[in-house]
Deep mutational scan, measured.
Amino acid sequence: EQLARLKREFNENRYLTERRRQQLSSELGLNEAQIKIWFQNERA
């Protein structure tokens, strides 16, 4: 579920704002660094 949600977010926007990253962190139970790194890896 977390992965599917991250992929949906990535398809909508390849870059997250700090606020959006905080929201996802709270909703998915991941820390902000994990989300940031995931997005960086997807863009690579």
Rank of each mutant, 00 (worst) to 15 (best):
R14M: 10
L16K: 02
E18N: 14
E9F: 08
I37G: 05
S25R: 04
Y15M: 08
I37L: 11
Y15I: 12
E42Q: 12
Q40H: 09
F10G: 01
Q22G: 04
Q23P: 00
Y15Q: 07
E18M: 11
L24E: 01
K36Y: 13
N41E: 07
R43I: 13
R20I: 10
G29I: 02
K7H: 10
Y15F: 13
G29P: 00
N11T: 09
R21M: 15
S26T: 13
E1A: 10
L6C: 05
N13P: 02
E27D: 07
S25Q: 04
F10R: 02
R5W: 05
R19V: 13
N11G: 11
L24Q: 00
Y15V: 11
L30A: 00
E9K: 05
S25E: 05
E32D: 06
E9L: 08
R20V: 07
Q34F: 15
E18V: 15
R5K: 06
E9M: 06
R21A: 15
Q40K: 10
R5D: 00
K36F: 12
A4R: 10
N41V: 07
N13K: 06
N31H: 10
Q34S: 10
R20G: 03
E27Y: 04
K7G: 04
R8T: 07
Q34T: 14
Q22D: 03
E42I: 06
G29R: 03
N11M: 14
I35A: 01
Y15D: 05
R20E: 06
S26R: 15
K7L: 12
E42R: 06
E18F: 09
Q23H: 08
N13R: 07
W38S: 01
L16H: 02
R8Y: 08
T17M: 06
R5H: 05
K7S: 05
L3Y: 09
Q22F: 09
I37T: 10
L28F: 03
E32H: 03
K7N: 03
S26F: 14
R8Q: 12
E9P: 02
E18R: 15
N13F: 06
L16T: 03
E27T: 04
I35T: 01
L28Q: 01
G29K: 04
T17S: 14
R43K: 07
N11K: 13
F39H: 01
I37P: 00
R14G: 08
L24R: 00
T17K: 05
N13G: 06
R8I: 10
R19I: 12
I35L: 09
R20F: 06
E1T: 07
L3H: 07
R8H: 11
K36A: 15
L28E: 00
I35Q: 00
E42S: 05
K36N: 14
R21T: 15
R14N: 09
L28T: 12
A44Q: 12
K36M: 15
S25D: 00
K36Q: 15
E18D: 14
S25H: 02
R43E: 09
R20L: 10
Q2F: 09
E12R: 13
L16D: 11
R21F: 12
Q40T: 07
R14H: 09
K7A: 07
N11W: 09
L3W: 07
N41I: 10
R19M: 12
Q23E: 14
A33M: 14
R21G: 11
R14E: 07
E27A: 07
Q23K: 11
N13Q: 03
F10V: 02
Q40Y: 07
R8E: 11
R20Y: 09
K36V: 15
R19S: 14
L6N: 01
E32Q: 06
E42K: 05
E18L: 12
K7E: 05
W38P: 01
L6F: 01
R8L: 10
Q34P: 00
F39W: 15
K36T: 15
G29M: 07
W38L: 04
A44K: 11
W38E: 00
Q40E: 15
F10Y: 08
A44N: 12
E27N: 03
Q34R: 04
Q40N: 08
L16R: 04
R20M: 11
A33H: 13
Q22Y: 08
A44D: 12
K36I: 15
N13Y: 07
I37S: 12
G29N: 07
L28S: 03
E42M: 14
G29F: 03
R19W: 10
I35N: 02
E9V: 07
R14L: 00
L3I: 13
E42L: 10
R20W: 05
E32N: 03
R14T: 05
R19H: 13
I37Y: 09
A33W: 15
R21D: 02
L28D: 00
A4V: 05
L6Y: 01
Q34N: 05
N13S: 08
A4T: 06
E27W: 06
L6V: 01
Q34A: 13
R21W: 13
Q22S: 09
Y15S: 08
Y15P: 04
R5I: 10
E27C: 10
R19E: 15
L30F: 03
L30K: 00
Q2N: 08
Q40V: 07
E27S: 04
L6M: 03
L24S: 01
Q2M: 12
Q40L: 09
R19G: 11
L24Y: 02
E42V: 06
S25V: 08
Q23Y: 11
S26A: 14
N31T: 15
L28K: 01
Q40F: 10
A33C: 15
R20Q: 12
F39C: 03
R19T: 13
S25P: 01
E32K: 05
L28G: 00
R14F: 03
F10H: 02
F10C: 09
L28R: 01
R21K: 11
W38D: 00
N41S: 07
I35V: 07
S25N: 01
K7Q: 10
N31C: 09
W38T: 00
L24K: 01
N11H: 12
E42P: 01
I35C: 04
N13I: 05
E12A: 10
K7I: 10
N41R: 12
N41P: 01
Q34L: 14
F39L: 03
N31D: 15
A44L: 13
E18G: 11
N31A: 13
W38M: 03
Q34H: 09
Q40P: 01
T17Q: 03
E9S: 05
